[in-house]
Design a protein around this nucleic acid. Structure first.
Lengths: 153, 153
DNA sequence: TTAGACCTTCCAGTGCACTGGAAGGTCAAG
DNA sequence: CTTGACCTTCCAGTGCACTGGAAGGTCTAA
């Protein structure tokens, strides 16, 4: 498979695929006689994994580490086991943070549901909501006063 | 509370706090007579939320949107409800991706546990594992051959 | 009153993850 | 044999999220 086809099936641009190679995320593929990159089918799986992990918020450096671990396959010394555990802990940490954010958002949805939607007829208000601080020097300080009884953590 | 204290209690550098203000993530606080920023206690909660959401993989633009929604408080028109639902969907998407990554990592841990740790005595091998492609022009193409029976998705 | 810690604005630089474009080689169809 | 799509390398630029540093004002403690 040449780079363009891989780009099509994986949804990752050719440019980005070359960049990933250069960044050590995917190994250098064999070349055709004319110098074109010639990818095996597994390449799509790998790119899919990279994109999944990335959308989940992992950096390329972290993903590179995970992939390297995975590629090593035959040499899982204690150190590698530790690394895997570290990555798992990191992922669990991130999921916890995502859950917190989701909870905050659900509370918001709750508040929104409880207020009468009919009370908003002017589209300008919504525009203000979606783009804050576009209209400076308001009279108010802007700090929301909703119950935040002293800081946690 | 002045910016330095807020930085200390929240763990977010003063520079970054000013940057968040300029970026519309936190409102402009009142100033002391000498022009120093004077933050209310809620500021720490807000910074904590920003950091949580960020560690979860949300961009500042997304977080800004969520905070703006939250600040609006009293004007939840249908449009705002939609936005909340969009953000929730996005977060669920990200959590699904995080779960996929975690599953991949757990399989890895499984493989590592099944192989004899005593088979690895040389620290060099581990060093190779943690920093791939630092040693180019190897004889192998580098593509791992482990069972990836045709691409999914 | 002066040292030192803290604050202000402004502007420039950094690292990550791409992304665009130039300049040129390859290949199948017309 | 030429057109056009595809590929190659290399280098430069972009957007995001900071981060550092200059130049200067403020405040407390010795």
């Amino acid at each position: 498979m040449r780079i363009g086809e891989l780009a099509d099936v994986s949804g990752v641009p050719s440019k980005t695929i070359r960049y990933y190679e250069q960044a050590g995320l995917i190994p250098e593929p064999p070349r055709t006689s004319s110098g074109y990159r010639d990818y095996p089918d597994e390449a799509t799986t790998r790119l899919t994994f990279i994109r999944d992990a990335q959308h989940a918020g992992l950096t390329l450096a972290e993903i590179r580490g995970i992939l390297a671990l995975r590629d090593s396959g035959q040499a899982p010394c204690d150190h590698v086991g530790d690394l895997i555990q570290q990555h798992l802990a990191e992922i669990n940490r991130r999921m916890a943070e995502l859950r917190k954010t989701r909870t905050a958002l659900r509370e918001l949805a709750q508040r929104a549901a409880e207020t009468d939607p009919a009370s908003c007829t002017d589209t300008d208000i919504c525009r203000i909501i979606s783009t804050p601080n576009r209209h400076r020097d308001e009279r108010t300080s802007g700090w929301p006063g909703h119950s935040t009884a002293s800081a946690s953590r």
